[in-house]
Computed example of a mutant assay.
Amino acid sequence: MSSRTAEGPQEHDVTIDGRSVRVRDAGDPDGAPIVYFHGTPGSRLDVGFGDGAATQAGVRVISFDRPGYGRSSPAAYDLESVARDALQIATDLGVDRFAALGWSGGGPFALATAAYGGDRVSAVGVAGGLAPPQEMPGGTDAFTPEDQRALSYLPDDPSGAALAFREANQGTLQLLLSARNDDADARWIDWMWGQTDPTVVADPALRTALRTVLDEGLRQGPTGVCWDNVAWGGPWGFALTEVRARAHLWYGEDDQMVPPANGRWLAAQLPQAALTSYADEGHLTPMRHWAEMMRALTA
């Protein structure tokens, strides 16, 4: 099953439809494989903090940058195309069956991979991930009128939707880029998660990991962020009933970025779902429960 024998994380580029996709291969090269989908914004480095735990647990973690993130070529994409990329990457690495895991904005991509991958996906995990906003009651309440206008381009003009989203959110996107380039103390980490995830942001190693993930994910600018919002903000293109793999859902009850109502709704829609809620935790649950999540997905 494994094509990797070297110790330590390995990185390489895979060519898919003429695009270069940067792949990271970490943990135990002979271990049970998990294909990981990063957040919005994020990168293949998202769960690098857990490399040692993965090796110890006998788990192989394969992650990759979506188009326009990190070191992957920019391109238009949707949930299905990223799922197809993941399946192709797994094939190229000699991996037949695997678990899929998405954190935050990566959650919808993990679910899509389970839907399109069929029996190749043994289990799927979502940590603080969105439910389909167009389907979940109240799912679009947080959308601004400008965001609604951007998504009105779908499904016919996804490129127009991505451009409209970028224009509507120039201020927020510029703040993200400014945090990447100018905030040497990474104070944005405290602003975003200081109240909901204090034990995580107080850990120097995890704080460095968060900074590294953002720096790498936004090295090409905010294009990937815009396409993520297009991919999961509009119609998903598949039904949750098509996700036949067992699903594990993890949510912090204090999460202000993706409220736990998303997890409760997903748990009610997915054919096989187990929901775990963490009291007094927010959006950074994988940084406290990584070993637990790996065990559940590879059991």
Rank of each mutant, 00 (worst) to 15 (best):
G234V: 10
D141P: 06
W103Y: 00
A261C: 12
E135Q: 11
F238S: 09
R19E: 13
L151F: 05
P108L: 05
G48A: 14
T223K: 06
L173G: 03
L275D: 11
L101K: 01
M192T: 14
Y77G: 02
G263S: 10
A268S: 14
A162Q: 08
Y69G: 08
T140D: 01
G263V: 14
E292D: 14
T285Y: 05
D28E: 10
R84S: 11
D197L: 08
A83G: 05
S43P: 08
E242M: 12
D156I: 02
A53Q: 08
D255W: 01
G42C: 10
A164C: 03
R180H: 05
N262P: 04
R19P: 03
L176P: 08
W250P: 01
D65S: 03
W250R: 02
T196S: 10
R187S: 14
V201C: 00
F64W: 09
W191K: 00
Y251F: 14
A239G: 13
A296M: 08
T113S: 06
V61E: 06
R244E: 15
R244F: 12
R24C: 09
D30S: 12
R71S: 13
G117L: 05
G252R: 05
A291G: 12
L154S: 02
S20I: 10
C226Y: 04
G233T: 02
R84Q: 14
D141M: 06
W232K: 08
D92T: 08
A112D: 01
L218P: 06
R4G: 03
P9M: 06
